[in-house]
Design a protein around this nucleic acid. Structure first.
Lengths: 313, 313
DNA sequence: TGCAATATTGCACACGTGTTCATTGCGGAC
DNA sequence: GTCCGCAATGAACACGTGTGCAATATTGCA
């Protein structure tokens, strides 16, 4: 009969007699009553929303992350408040402010770089901040990183095994930390091996950028290998190499990518690439949500070489 | 000084003296104060959240829709509560219940079919329900549909122009209304023209299903045309046709898809397809959000034939 | 039956808004 | 000097929870 009875009926483990419980449920059914999550959040000073910030949600790599993350959150009983940052370079601070206003438990950043002031605010308000594949030089944030150094090493070793003489490294012009780490590590190793490396970077992280890279780089007939730090660019690179620049892959050109997006295994490409496990990555994010407030971790997601058909044996 | 002053400071068009306003803003800055959207929503009996239900968010077609929709919502000052339905066949009713609990203004359904009881509840609570590319036989819901009949007609006409004699229609086994409408309309037209049509359906709406379709259908050497009701399946179909079944496209096999996903224009495919404008589709959804409560509309999103390289001239 | 222990229940409060209402202060017009 | 209009401001309320506290009903035990 009292409002407390209602609350207790819908609260796990509260003390209600079976009879009252039954009456409440029946009344709720008739009146179309539903718990109000806004009021719950107001009362607890925290909703169980998790803010997710991302840009270019239709790119395969991001879309896959978002798919698995939103599913994982839902399974854990948390809801996903999705904010689209529109552009990889756009300022995500206002979006994070918005998430604060919803009293979210945690914030996951897939794109863009949260400014230091925001990081401080998260810390002050007890909001978990988790960034994926972007390097924050702070020890008070959870950072999930693909093992870029290992990945670059695997790629480099594979291209030297294929006896490449002059290789290109293709990055986008966006200059995300992950891409730079991959490219730099790769360049260092190759130079140590005494192999010519030519860097290239321009444009957004898209298929079209890969096309452009191949058109410009393959004007040099000496180039016989390429490491594209993103599968999407690798696929564009492959297409331009084969259909416009007349190269035969893998016979006179070896190409290797990074991420292992679904399209990489399509029959027209069979791209050899460095795979990050989306499962492990998602698990790492979900695990980070459970960390205590002070505890923050930099976690490396393991990578493996997936051997397909674009590198000479 | 009073709490009212704070509220007025952050409310557009409220009556506050510049001095008080300045003081409040300064204090807010120092204390890290932020408006609490949960309390706002509680007070208004409605948050400005929009619930979005979708499955398989990493499929290009869905991902693109979600990308544009979330961006459009954000630009309109509404937030996107994303619920991942995991599977195209899974029951979305509990997810919609969850959205109700957040007192969302509107619900957008990208996957699955909301049961009638849910539709009634939306109507009763004044929650706008918008379904995309699934046919609800009710006049009280906003339905955004691609013009499947026109699309099927364009595809049929193009394949007859290419002088195909025996054509296949490929659908997934999920049996979504849109796919069925496309396939049925296409089949009807072809039969009217006296052309042999063989239907095929199986599996989920994926690239792999397209592969399987080609492997099974192209065992029949007479088949010289195919309409895949989804680009993703069309790309799989193309790959198996070319690389496994030894067909030359478009010389002895013409293939046409539907949706115009980004990958359709990649150099390895150059898929001729029926394009739905993602811009128009998104605009239609956003416009539907503004409809008055009673007013609901079935809107057809126009389609066009995009001529590329997979149908014989 | 009597008493203690336990389960159930109602009341009151706090959470942070936006808004209505009444009050106050002020400037200008007569 | 008085009165009117207007802007500014504070007090109070309602929104729907979950919970601490006190009161009451029920059970177990001697």
């Amino acid at each position: 009969m009292s409002r407390s009875a209602v609350s207790r009926t819908f609260t796990e483990g509260a003390s209600v007699s079976p009879e009252v419980r039954r009456k409440v449920l029946k009344a709720a059914q008739e009146l179309g009553y539903r718990v109000n999550r806004l009021a719950q959040g107001l009362n607890n000073a925290s909703s169980n929303l998790v803010g997710v910030v991302g840009a270019n949600l239709s790119l395969p790599f991001i879309a896959k992350q978002l798919d698995m993350l939103s599913l994982g959150l839902l399974r854990r009983g948390q809801q996903c408040l999705l904010l689209n940052a529109a552009d990889a370079r756009s300022d995500i601070a206002p979006l994070i402010e918005l998430i604060f206003e919803f009293r979210a438990r945690a914030i996951v950043v897939l794109s863009g770089e949260p400014p230091a002031s925001i990081v401080d605010e998260c810390l002050a308000n007890g909001v978990k901040l988790i960034v994926i594949n972007r390097l924050l030089e702070r020890s008070d944030t959870d950072v999930i990183l693909s093992d870029d150094i290992l990945g670059a090493t695997l790629a480099a070793r594979r291209l030297t095994d294929a006896r490449c003489r002059k290789v290109a490294v293709v990055t986008s012009g966006s200059g995300t930390p992950t891409q730079i780490r991959r490219a730099e590590a790769f360049g260092r190793i190759m130079k140590d091996d005494g192999i010519d490396v030519v860097g290239w970077h321009d444009g957004p992280t898209t298929y079209e950028t890969g096309l452009k890279a191949a058109r410009e780089l393959l004007a040099d007939p000496a180039i016989d290998g390429a490491f594209c730090v993103t599968d999407l660019m690798a696929l564009g690179f492959l297409d331009a190499a084969r259909h416009e620049m007349g190269r035969s892959v893998p016979d006179d050109l070896s190409v290797i990518g990074f991420d292992d997006i679904p399209q990489a295994s399509w029959k027209s490409y069979e791209l050899t690439t460095i795979a990050q496990s989306f499962e492990v990555l998602t698990e790492a994010v979900l695990a980070a949500l459970d960390h205590a407030d002070g505890q923050s971790v930099i976690q490396n997601v393991p990578v493996t070489l997936v051997e397909r058909q674009t590198v000479r044996r």
